[in-house]
Design a protein around this nucleic acid. Structure first.
Lengths: 217, 217
DNA sequence: GTCTATATGTAGATAGAC
DNA sequence: GTCTATCTACATATAGAC
């Protein structure tokens, strides 16, 4: 388990601080894990790009596995927080299509806004130690449950097709939403455009449909 | 580069042969690569599960990197072959929806039928040596081109939405089709059912639509 | 074709100075 | 908090017997 983040003096603006070494290590580790894979990333590489020596890492973390656990934490938190925030910001009487769209946008926002951590999470999750993975199983299954409930409500409301089991729809949907982190390029259209396009694709499909709502562009 | 497969006596039924050591090594490697990651899989593990000693692998392959290259080959070939076969089997006057559906089913069939190799391909591609990856770039871009052409034809035919660029639709689509290998369980419904469900989801989306064609179940 | 034995490199982790 | 130096383990790959 990671050390808990030390409490900072609230009177000092956080922005004035240089990046804490611990956070620096995590950011570098996330990027290297997703670029080079978990086992193929060495503590020496992480240390070098963090501007310290390899041995110094052990002052901040118990070891490589603990670093991986923290990176996984950041990645899943970015996504779940974004989804919860967007859903909570909706008016109480928002219809199901609006709610689904908000959840989709939240997932995409979390994924792309903290791309190093979310990409690292997706790519290294299966390959970290059993201990680190076990610690995350409950977090991930809570997120899964959130989607299953949302999708079931959408089925009940008559918005979603009922000919495919909700868990399978969820696996398809969340899987599809995880890919843009691989290829999204902010220079070709901003986030809002991407979110609208992906939302249209998952909700309405690739084909044209007469009287479609929410046409993009 | 791998040695070319030795020519076998055509008079001897292939099925009567015990699995050639070389093929056995590849199959074990593909499974271990996808289960444990590339860098975290050792030649000793591959050798042990192939029933030989680590040193013996070098009679069949130049090294770990060559094994990875062969696994990548098998994975992409399984998918491209299946797609080409399904498209070629269609009558010449098949409409675009039929053609798109055939390509989707072909991709899924290739992915799931040779799951160890295709899963390994997806998971290790970014992490093998530059040399092995470079060798595959052209193969992968040919496959990408096949999809872009198919999708563009579908746009021209009025079947596919034209408000999202074809390359982005392709990235979304192929990405979405790559996930089922992570969670498909043949004990819960056969391949035909899965293919019909995934096809419906990508073509028509998650939402109900009036007068939808091709309802599943 | 497969074995044993080993050369060589480098990984994660630790100890103790500063 | 960070450094240097080092321990121990195990990886890929090679050599040569059988």
């Amino acid at each position: 388990m990671p050390r808990s983040t030390p409490v900072r003096d609230a009177a000092v603006p956080a922005a004035a601080q240089p990046p804490a070494t611990r956070e620096q290590i995590l950011a570098v580790a996330a990027r290297l894990f997703s670029e080079r894979g978990y086992a193929n990333t060495t503590l020496r590489q992480i240390a070098q790009q963090s501007g310290i020596q390899a041995g110094s890492i052990y002052y901040h973390f118990d070891g490589k596995d603990t670093i991986a656990a923290c990176v996984l934490d950041e990645g899943i938190a970015a996504v779940t927080d974004a989804v919860h925030r967007r859903l909570a910001a909706l008016p109480a009487d928002a219809d199901m299509r609006t709610r689904l769209g908000a959840a989709v946008e939240g997932h995409l926002w979390g994924m792309l806004h903290r791309g190093e951590f979310t990409a690292a999470h997706i790519r290294i999750y299966r390959y970290v130690s059993d201990a680190a993975r076990a610690r995350h199983r409950s977090i991930r299954s809570a997120y899964t449950r959130l989607w299953d409930e949302l999708l079931q409500q959408a089925v009940d409301a008559g918005l979603l097709r009922s000919d495919i089991p909700v868990p399978m729809v969820r696996q398809f949907l969340v899987g599809a939403l995880n890919w843009p982190v691989d290829w999204y390029d902010p220079r070709r259209g901003g986030f809002e455009q991407l979110a609208a396009q992906i939302t249209a694709l998952v909700l309405d499909g690739l084909t044209t449909r007469p009287g479609r709502r929410g046409l993009v562009s």
